[in-house]
Amino acid sequence: MKKFLACITMAASVIASGNVLAHGDKPKHGGIVQSANDLSFEMVNKDNATLIYVEDHGKKLSTAGAAGKLTLLNGAEKSELPLEPAGENMLAAKGDTKLAKGTKAIASITFANKETVNVRFAVR
């Protein structure tokens, strides 16, 4: 009986704390959201242009002075595109980027404070 009550209590606490434990955010721009180094990144592909939005616990994180590269892996094909600031909390890949189903993307971003973050995305 004690084991049964312990299981019920544990299950209830997991269910109740589900929202608190979740770190991933919902897409705000219709893209793919991933977390890395306690930051949230949303990759959006529209009209063959790829943008990455950056947030720190729900607040926009400035990308001024940031730079990086976006590596796209699609089967045996590999391409690398530079990332440059394109707005308050946004980086844009320079060049046409069509993200097909199954494409894997790795963004390597160095912020103005010299902190580098690598974040991986998978297009489904």
Rank of each mutant, 00 (worst) to 15 (best):
K46Y: 05
D56K: 00
M10A: 11
S40K: 00
P27L: 14
T71K: 06
N19D: 05
G30T: 01
K2S: 15
V54F: 01
F4D: 12
C7L: 02
R124H: 15
I8Q: 14
A64Y: 08
M10S: 09
S17I: 03
V20N: 00
K94C: 01
A11H: 00
H23S: 14
A105D: 00
P27D: 09
E77G: 07
A100Y: 09
T63V: 01
K69V: 09
S62R: 01
D96K: 12
A64M: 15
C7P: 02
S79G: 13
H57E: 04
T110P: 10
S13T: 12
V20I: 10
H29Q: 12
G95C: 13
E80H: 01
S79P: 03
A122I: 14
T50D: 02
R124W: 09
K60A: 13
A92L: 13
G31R: 00
V119M: 14
P85R: 07
T116Q: 05
G31K: 00
D96T: 09
A6L: 07
N37F: 08
E42L: 03
T116N: 08
I106G: 07
F41P: 02
D96L: 09
L70D: 04
I106A: 13
T110A: 04
D47H: 02
T103M: 08
A92G: 04
L5N: 11
R124A: 08
M10D: 08
T9R: 07
A92E: 05
K60C: 07
A67M: 04
M43N: 04
A49I: 13
F111S: 01
T97Q: 08
S13V: 11
F111A: 00
N113W: 01
A93I: 03
N89T: 01
G87Y: 04
E88R: 03
A100S: 04
N45T: 13
K2N: 14
I15A: 12
G68V: 03
P85G: 06
I106V: 12
S62I: 00
S17W: 04
V20Y: 05
A105T: 13
L39E: 01
M43T: 03
E88H: 05
A76D: 15
D25C: 09
K2L: 14
M90D: 04
L21H: 13
D47V: 06
N45L: 06
S17V: 09
I106E: 13
K104F: 06
E115V: 07
A16C: 11
A93C: 08
A16N: 00
G75Q: 08
I106S: 07
K3C: 10
N118G: 11
G65F: 15
V123L: 15
L5F: 15
K114D: 12
N37E: 11
N19W: 14
V119P: 03
H23P: 05
V54P: 15
L51F: 12
S35R: 04
G65V: 11
T110E: 13
V33R: 05
Y53W: 06
K46R: 11
G31L: 00
I52S: 07
G95F: 10
A112T: 00
R120H: 13
D25R: 04
G18D: 05
I109L: 06
R120L: 08
F4Y: 07
T71L: 06
S17D: 06
V119L: 05
A100F: 08
I8P: 09
